[in-house]
Simulated scan of single mutants.
Amino acid sequence: MSDITLRRATADDSRRLTRLVRTSGAYAGEYASMVDGYQVGGAYIEHHPVYVAVDAAGRVLGFYALLLDEAELDLAFVADEAQGRGIGRLLMEHMTGEGRAAGLDSIRVVAHPPAEEFYLRTGARRTGTVPPAGHTHWARPELRFDLTADAA
């Protein structure tokens, strides 16, 4: 992990982040419609705290996007070939630190169903279920990272 660093994403990362989302193995099969045509745009990256995990060669291995006004994790992805190396955990630790620094008490996550266990392992707690809506034809787990001193 010593060769992995986190940095703030820039609009120039848009294509790489979009590719990471669209090629995610977690969105194959029945979930493919969620990322079909999805775009992580430069304006989105510039407007929200988006952080990328990069290796020593500068390759993007994962990223997250936090919506501060909504206190919600909007996006979190780790490249398929980089999973199992602790990158997701590193991203979640950084995300909760950013949330605390911004004065948030908690961060909501509406998770992709296969990712629920990951969020539970990284400190989130299950708070409910979001019913299907729009292009999402399945219920999604709702979780929350508590950021208060008592929860840390």
Rank of each mutant, 00 (worst) to 15 (best):
P113F: 05
D105H: 13
E46Q: 07
G88N: 00
A65Q: 12
R108V: 15
D105T: 14
D105F: 06
V50Q: 00
L61H: 02
A56C: 05
I87R: 06
E98H: 13
F63T: 03
I45K: 08
L73M: 02
L104N: 02
H112L: 01
G42R: 07
S106Q: 14
L73W: 03
V109N: 05
L66S: 05
V109Q: 03
I45S: 07
H48Y: 08
A71T: 06
F77L: 10
L104C: 09
G103C: 08
L68K: 07
L68R: 09
G42C: 05
V52G: 08
I107R: 01
P49V: 01
A65G: 14
V78I: 05
D80N: 15
H94D: 14
V54Y: 02
F63M: 06
L67F: 02
A71F: 00
E81A: 15
L90G: 10
G84I: 10
L73K: 00
H112G: 07
Q83T: 13
G99F: 00
G99N: 03
I45H: 09
A57F: 05
L104K: 09
A101I: 08
I107H: 02
V60K: 10
L67Q: 14
P113K: 07
I107L: 08
P49I: 00
I45R: 06
T96I: 09
